[in-house]
Simulated assay, not measured.
Amino acid sequence: MHGPVTAGWLLVALCAAAGGYCLLRMRSSVDEQRGSAGGEALMGFGMAAMAVPGAVLAPPRWMWLAYAVVFGGAALHTLVSARGRPHRPHRLRHHLHHLLGTLAMVYMAVAMAATSSGTAGASGAHSGMSGTMTGMSVAGGIPLLTGALLIYYAGYVLGAGARLLPGPATAGPTGGGGAALAWGDRPELGLACRLTMGLAMLAMLLTL
């Protein structure tokens, strides 16, 4: 029983750390780092809250609905901001990835709200990774949609991990040669945070 609880708290810690670093990126002098940091911080802290082990906290149904509203609003904001300005292809891909992430959070919150009323009495008896997302029934969610999201995030995690592998030395992303970058400006740390949240999303989707 300690394994799932430990895994849940590890997931909470990783997501909270990623969210905290995204807050630091909001003060970056690099526009590309600063532009999406707020939305990613919300994702990180939201996933940390949803990953609290079920043995510690069993949120009521209205809380899952509140999660759905918050991330639905974040999805709408991402969509509006993406349409309101031209983007280079990689920035557009990033906006689409963030939009999919917020919609996935809405999907998981709605699935948990739909099952929480029927599983409230049994949530304390859940074991395995189902304890990571409080009160989740293994029958929650739409299998085809869950499977498609799992495939997407598995591919994203593999791609992000490959981009973090050491490669040939190149000039810094800001064109400053070998000048040291501030912690909030380092693109590899931003990518590492997105990789962490991708792994967390995979773990959460597996509980549906």
Results as ranks from 00 to 15, higher is better:
L57M: 07
H126D: 01
L42I: 14
R88H: 09
T174P: 01
H95K: 08
L100I: 14
A122L: 14
V70E: 06
V30W: 01
L144G: 02
G172E: 01
L57A: 10
A122T: 13
A200M: 11
M136I: 10
S137R: 02
Y21A: 03
L96F: 04
A125S: 15
V110H: 03
T170S: 10
A148H: 05
P168E: 08
G35S: 05
V110G: 09
L65D: 07
A139Y: 11
A55Q: 12
H98F: 12
L14M: 10
A48N: 05
R83N: 02
A7D: 14
L206V: 10
G167R: 15
H95R: 11
M43L: 15
P143C: 00
M197L: 15
T102K: 05
H2N: 12
G54V: 06
D31M: 06
M50C: 14
A18C: 15
A49K: 08
G128I: 04
M136K: 06
A51N: 06
G20N: 11
P143G: 01
H126G: 01
M108E: 07
P86S: 10
S29R: 13
W183M: 01
P53S: 09
A171D: 09
E188Q: 00
A179N: 09
P86Y: 00
D31V: 01
P60Y: 01
L165M: 15
L208I: 02
L165N: 12
P143I: 02
P143A: 00
T115L: 04
G184T: 00
P187W: 00
A114L: 15
A104W: 00
S137L: 12
G35Y: 03
L92N: 04
G19Q: 10
M108F: 02
R34W: 01
V110K: 01
M133I: 12
R88Y: 05
R163C: 13
W183T: 00
A200N: 14
S81K: 09
A41H: 04
E188Y: 02
G118L: 08
A203M: 13
G35M: 03
R27M: 06
G155V: 07
T132E: 12
L165E: 11
T196W: 05
